[in-house]
């Protein structure tokens, strides 16, 4: 199947011709498959934020191309807005973008810009609100009356309501408490399961990535360091650690056990998998 997004030799240089010139993304190439849940992980300054702003045409590549369903998004610069409806981008701390008088109107901002009205608009807004867990009675409130976590959900709904084919989330759970994090991630997982739409999740929490995504892309100083399924990526824990990144806690436990002589797959990244490994080991040991 054709990848939904193809990034080809993408380079972005900031401040060309000033003393501050530097490349945030350099010759980066990778594909995003249709319907997958892709995790992007990297240190601060690894180019994550610059990269995702290229996916919906907020930034224009210094060189290289971004293809959406095989078509260069900058083929017709005048139609870049259509790309933004197809690739929905939720920034870090998106609650600062709220501005309308009511939550309902704020969620409706994106779909209205798409030209939707009437019943379809209403359906989109209510569905998006439901997906992120915003209650009906909150729709008529001012977004500024809500708590931080609720504001975040409203902002997320504002992008989901555009029903983009690809949803890009930049650290959606940053700054939330543990319960809020898990809750929001569950909403995002539900969205992925029900809508079968592609999601790109940027995060620097390895645990969050490990628990949710189908495939991981590891960035380091503007380059793709590793990519593959979580099992493939976490099997190369040394490379991750040397890039200054973490591995999930469970993987750390597994590696420590392995170092003490237990025959455990070092690439386990969920509690369930580790439990299976350990049970198998005990039963295997008992039979000797």
């Amino acid at each position: 199947m054709e990848p939904i997004l193809q990034i080809q030799h993408l380079t972005h240089t900031y401040g060309v011709g000033t003393p501050f010139q530097r490349s945030a993304v350099e010759d980066m190439s990778f594909d995003v498959r249709d319907g997958e849940f892709l995790g992007v992980i990297g240190h601060t300054g690894s180019g994550k934020s610059t990269l995702i702003q290229h996916l919906n045409g907020l930034l224009r590549p210094t060189s290289g191309r971004v293809l959406l369903r095989g078509k260069d998004i900058w083929a017709e610069p005048k139609k870049i807005r259509d790309v933004r409806f197809q690739v929905g981008l939720v920034f870090q701390y998106p609650e600062y973008q709220l501005f309308e008088e009511t939550v309902y109107k704020d969620i409706a901002f994106g779909p209205t810009n798409q030209g939707l009205t009437g019943a379809e608009l209403d359906r989109r807004v209510r569905e998006a609100a439901r997906l992120v867990g915003v209650r009906d009675d909150q729709l008529d409130k001012s977004p500024f009356e809500l708590s931080g976590g609720q504001k975040r959900r409203v902002a997320l709904a504002g992008v989901m309501a555009m029903e983009p084919e690809v949803l890009v989330l930049d650290e959606p759970t940053a700054g939330l408490d543990p319960a809020g994090r898990e809750n929001l991630m569950a909403n995002i997982r539900d969205y992925h399961r029900n809508k079968k739409r592609t999601i790109i999740l940027v995060s620097h929490s390895m645990d969050e990535i490990a628990r949710n995504v189908d495939r991981i892309l590891v960035l380091k100083s503007g380059h793709v360091l590793l990519q593959g399924t979580p099992a493939e990526v976490f099997a190369r824990a040394e490379e991750l650690l040397s890039a200054g990144l973490d591995v999930p806690q469970v993987t750390r436990v597994a590696r420590a056990l392995r170092e003490r002589g237990l025959a455990i797959d070092p690439a386990v990244y969920t509690v369930e998998a580790l439990e299976r490994e350990l049970t198998a080991l005990r039963e295997g040991g008992a039979s000797c």
Binding site: Q53, Q97, Q114
Partner: peptide, 28 residues
């Protein structure tokens, strides 16, 4: 950027439309 990602359009339209387009920036 965040409003552009939601399809806000700051470039086209007449003066009044352009001024209205600033609301989503000025309020936040």
């Amino acid at each position: 950027s965040a409003q552009k990602a939601r399809g806000a359009d700051f470039e086209s339209g007449n003066v009044i439309q352009k001024a209205r387009a600033l609301i989503p920036i000025l309020v936040p």
